[in-house]
Simulated assay, not measured.
Amino acid sequence: MAVHSNFDEYSYDMLSVSRDILTHCDTALSRNTLDPSKQRKLESMRSQLNQSDQEKRVTLKYSDIKFLHSCLQESCDENKESSPHLYELMEMTSLQLPSPPSLDKSDAYVARMERLRLLAEEAEYQKMTKNISSASEPNEGIGKELKVMDSQVTFLFNFILTVVGAFVFGYKGVEYSLPTPNVSLQLTVGVTLATIVFFADVYFIIKKYV
């Protein structure tokens, strides 16, 4: 099978999970249909399996499983019986991979890991303090806006007061300066002074805020 042929390129060991492999070895040996070289090799493999099985650890290469499969096919063909498929034999094993080599931690590696740990802690601290400062910013912004609003209200009050004061000054000034009241003249002078003060205030507003 093409799926399993790639195993031949590697020295993978298999860990047996049952005694069925031994049973198949016994089956192939008991029929006496193999040539002497295969017979000896299969007997050697069975002896290895039996010893390993007693130690609760079986190690076989994929090529050994394929050899057992070919022996079973040959003996079954001679007796016109069906032999187990290769995948059925593979299901009785599990792949045993070697443990990765342990890496010695050099002084440079330890120093670098310590530096990275400190950098991570510093980044976490900056993140925490950023959240705290961000939480206090809205209160500071509200206080600043209140100060600006108070300044604007005061300026508007002064603006209205000066315009109204100029009108009253012109209106009453003319009234007190004439022997008889002249409402039209009083209004004219009051409005004129109020207009002059109004545009003067507007000029200073533009000069200050624009």
Rank of each mutant, 00 (worst) to 15 (best):
166 A>I: 01
185 L>R: 00
140 E>Y: 08
132 I>V: 15
180 T>V: 15
155 F>H: 09
130 K>D: 14
122 E>Q: 10
192 T>A: 07
194 A>M: 11
117 R>V: 04
135 A>R: 08
182 N>I: 04
163 V>R: 03
171 Y>R: 12
160 I>N: 13
123 A>H: 13
155 F>T: 04
191 V>G: 02
111 A>L: 13
122 E>V: 11
121 E>H: 13
134 S>Q: 05
197 V>R: 06
199 F>A: 01
120 A>N: 13
115 R>N: 11
183 V>Y: 15
117 R>D: 04
179 P>K: 14
131 N>Q: 08
147 K>N: 01
177 S>I: 12
198 F>N: 00
159 F>K: 12
116 L>F: 11
190 G>L: 10
195 T>N: 09
162 T>C: 10
111 A>W: 10
184 S>V: 12
187 L>Q: 05
184 S>L: 06
151 S>E: 06
193 L>E: 01
111 A>D: 08
175 E>D: 00
199 F>G: 01
117 R>K: 15
152 Q>C: 14
111 A>G: 05
111 A>F: 09
159 F>V: 01
133 S>A: 07
154 T>R: 15
111 A>H: 15
159 F>C: 03
155 F>G: 05
116 L>G: 07
177 S>P: 03
142 I>T: 06
200 A>L: 07
149 M>I: 11
182 N>A: 04
151 S>P: 12
118 L>R: 15
197 V>F: 09
157 F>A: 08
114 E>A: 10
158 N>H: 09
151 S>I: 13
178 L>C: 07
151 S>L: 14
158 N>I: 10
170 G>R: 03
199 F>K: 04
184 S>H: 13
144 K>S: 04
160 I>E: 05
137 E>F: 13
137 E>Y: 13
143 G>T: 06
193 L>S: 01
170 G>A: 03
144 K>T: 01
129 T>C: 07
196 I>L: 04
133 S>Y: 08
164 V>C: 11
135 A>I: 14
136 S>Y: 07
118 L>K: 15
166 A>H: 01
169 F>K: 03
162 T>W: 08
122 E>D: 02
135 A>C: 07
127 K>C: 11
130 K>C: 07
143 G>S: 04
172 K>E: 00
161 L>Q: 04
167 F>T: 04
176 Y>S: 07
140 E>W: 09
174 V>N: 01
181 P>V: 05
196 I>E: 02
136 S>G: 10
125 Y>N: 04
177 S>N: 02
123 A>F: 14
190 G>K: 15
130 K>Q: 07
141 G>R: 07
192 T>D: 03
164 V>F: 10
156 L>I: 10
144 K>W: 03
113 M>V: 08
130 K>R: 01
143 G>I: 10
159 F>Y: 04
136 S>A: 09
156 L>P: 00
131 N>G: 06
196 I>P: 02
193 L>C: 05
121 E>C: 07
115 R>E: 06
179 P>T: 07
137 E>G: 12
116 L>W: 13
151 S>K: 15
